[in-house]
Simulated assay, not measured.
Amino acid sequence: MPASRGPRRGLSAAAVAAVLLAGITGCGDEAAEAPAAASVSASTAQSPSPSASASAPVTASAPASPSASAPPTTRAVTPTPPPAPTRLTVAVDTRGGRLALVRGGAPQEFTVTLRNGNSAEYRHVLVAFQMEMLVGEPGGAAGSGPGFLLERFDPGAGTWRPADFRIANDAKPPSLFTGGGPLAREAVRVERYRLRATAGGPTGSSPVMVSFIDTDAGREVAAHVVLGHTTR
């Protein structure tokens, strides 16, 4: 009986040794696999998630708000230059370009046109007439006679009224004239006149000088016009 127990004890020892060897080998495999698993976990924790990496470029490239954008460019506006200054111009228009009268005959009509510029506005502009004395004219005569009658048409009343017609050889200073009508900037004024040679008056040829006077300033505002005239 004792002989049979010995071999069974030897088998048990070999089995135990095999088990221990297998355990040691298994422990080595687990130890080798542990760092790999740790490295995978670490790399997974450090790398950004797909959603985070995708949203980052969108946030960086978002357009700026209008208030933060650059100010809009302003177009350069070229100022309009003021109009060139213009002055008062005048014209005297009569049939045939001159006054041809007959003593005791019908009067001859003519017009005087004043075209104001853009430089000044006038309260009183007077149209004044003067003629040198003809042969046989009484010395020192002035006004509308003797010998001639100048009339101006009054559009308000629709009738002709006597107008001053100075007959003298000397010039009257502009500062001594009075009267006249207003003339705004760029306004046009047309006045109608007619001149008659009375019966028994002088005959001959003498020009009529038409002057334009600012009676407030006592000066001429335009060059005078010389109108040819003959009475027979």
Rank of each mutant, 00 (worst) to 15 (best):
128 A>T: 10
153 F>L: 04
48 P>V: 14
30 E>V: 15
63 P>I: 00
143 G>K: 10
102 V>M: 04
76 A>S: 14
44 T>K: 01
219 R>T: 05
20 L>W: 14
24 I>K: 15
178 T>F: 06
110 F>D: 09
129 F>Y: 09
158 G>N: 09
110 F>T: 10
229 H>W: 05
10 G>I: 02
44 T>M: 13
98 R>N: 00
164 D>C: 04
2 P>S: 03
222 A>D: 06
223 A>H: 03
128 A>R: 12
114 L>Q: 14
149 L>V: 13
179 G>S: 10
104 G>V: 03
200 G>A: 05
217 A>L: 12
76 A>K: 06
110 F>I: 05
96 G>F: 10
158 G>I: 09
59 T>H: 05
108 Q>Y: 02
21 L>I: 08
206 S>W: 04
126 L>D: 09
35 P>N: 08
19 V>A: 15
186 E>A: 08
28 G>S: 13
111 T>R: 15
57 P>Y: 08
125 V>R: 01
188 V>K: 04
206 S>H: 05
181 G>L: 15
221 V>D: 00
32 A>K: 15
131 M>K: 10
155 P>N: 06
31 A>Y: 12
17 A>W: 09
31 A>D: 02
217 A>F: 05
146 P>F: 08
204 G>E: 07
214 D>A: 08
200 G>V: 02
48 P>Y: 03
95 R>A: 09
147 G>F: 11
32 A>Q: 07
34 A>N: 15
22 A>R: 12
23 G>M: 10
155 P>Y: 05
119 S>L: 15
232 R>E: 11
210 V>Y: 00
77 V>N: 13
209 M>T: 12
223 A>Q: 10
153 F>I: 03
124 H>Q: 12
150 L>Q: 12
119 S>P: 12
55 S>C: 04
122 Y>K: 06
181 G>A: 13
205 S>G: 08
18 A>V: 13
97 G>N: 03
74 T>R: 01
157 A>Y: 02
191 E>Q: 14
228 G>I: 01
152 R>A: 06
199 A>I: 10
223 A>D: 01
55 S>R: 03
185 R>T: 09
156 G>W: 01
84 A>H: 11
183 L>C: 13
174 P>F: 06
230 T>G: 05
215 T>C: 02
145 G>V: 10
20 L>Q: 12
140 G>E: 13
33 E>H: 05
39 S>F: 04
41 S>N: 10
47 S>C: 03
162 P>H: 03
173 P>I: 01
87 R>P: 00
197 A>R: 00
42 A>F: 06
209 M>C: 09
207 P>Y: 03
40 V>S: 14
228 G>L: 01
157 A>H: 02
16 V>Q: 09
219 R>W: 01
87 R>M: 08
186 E>D: 14
3 A>L: 08
110 F>M: 14
56 A>N: 02
186 E>K: 00
39 S>I: 10
153 F>A: 01
151 E>Q: 15
193 Y>R: 11
79 P>Q: 07
204 G>T: 04
8 R>P: 07
211 S>M: 14
37 A>L: 15
134 L>T: 11
80 T>H: 09
159 T>F: 04
9 R>W: 07
48 P>I: 09
135 V>S: 15
219 R>G: 01
133 M>E: 13
